[in-house]
């Protein structure tokens, strides 16, 4: 396994008095797909939101332990949240493009990072690249000024992924990105993930075990805030070491 890009050491997270993550030690390798599975409320989404510090927005959330991105502790005092979130992009459960044009949606990240002042042609170039990387350019090149919210859910989710690329992230966090999509759309997004893996490190949270088995290289099973087991996906699904993991993947629990 390559050197980890993301690493947690004795990570604990509390919401007030409730401990949502318990001593999580996880290492995510670069340019692979790592999936986190587990029953609802096990803390998998919380863990995902540790990596771009979106949990900071929750009142009363508190973290102990270390989380290293490229060897740097992202919870160290003085961490620049803005550049962290540029490096670590997030795709949400429900496709959530802004109710503005496709073009403006893709460029939202640029606007925010004041890389504006680019020529119209350059901006179109950027939009083209982003949409090409999610295989939407051919479909949408004549509809860039249409509302993104008028597209199909699958296309909307692709736009949400494409929107991340303009700020050049390294890691893509995906929080059940297919749960609002039908099986065909899900299959196509999964294909896309295989494509994206060549350039990005992907961490996906899913409660769809088949999805985890299909798309991911490594899998972690979480239960009640603990990372019960972590390893190569094949191993987790064929020869789990922990009884709890076995119960879950064979459908006896969760």
């Amino acid at each position: 396994m390559a050197a980890p890009i993301l690493l947690t050491e004795s990570l604990n997270l509390f919401y007030g008095n409730f401990q949502a993550l318990k001593n999580v030690n996880l290492s995510v390798a670069g340019r692979r797909i790592t999936s986190i599975i587990g029953p609802s409320g096990c803390g998998k989404s919380t863990l995902l939101r540790v990596f771009n510090r979106m949990n900071d927005l929750v009142e009363g959330a508190r973290v102990t332990g270390r989380v290293l991105l490229d060897g740097e502790d992202i919870y160290a005092p003085g961490t620049d949240l803005l550049s962290l979130r540029k490096k670590v992009g997030m795709v949400f459960q429900r496709p959530n493009p802004f109710p503005i044009s496709v073009f403006e949606n893709i460029l939202f990240g640029l606007r925010v990072h004041q890389l504006a002042g680019k020529s119209k042609d350059r901006l179109r170039e950027i939009v083209k690249e982003s949409l090409e990387s999610v295989l939407l350019w051919e479909d949408l090149k004549d509809r860039l000024n249409g509302l993104a919210t008028n597209l199909s859910l699958e296309q909307q989710q692709r736009i949400c992924i494409a929107r991340l690329f303009v700020v050049r992230p390294e890691v893509l966090l995906m929080d059940e990105p297919c749960s609002a999509l039908d099986p065909l759309a899900t299959a196509r997004i999964e294909e896309l993930m295989q494509e994206l893996k060549k350039n990005y490190t992907i961490v996906i949270v899913t409660h769809n075990m088949q999805q985890a088995a299909r798309v991911s290289d490594d899998t972690g099973y979480m239960y009640l805030g603990e990372l019960v087991e972590f390893g190569a996906t094949q191993k987790i699904f064929t020869t789990p070491r922990d009884k709890r993991t076995e119960d879950y993947i064979t459908g006896r629990a969760g």
Partner: peptide, 13 residues
Amino acid sequence: GSFREVSLSLGAT
């Protein structure tokens, strides 16, 4: 709220 969340997650202040 998702608009705010997306924006912040893209590194906006």
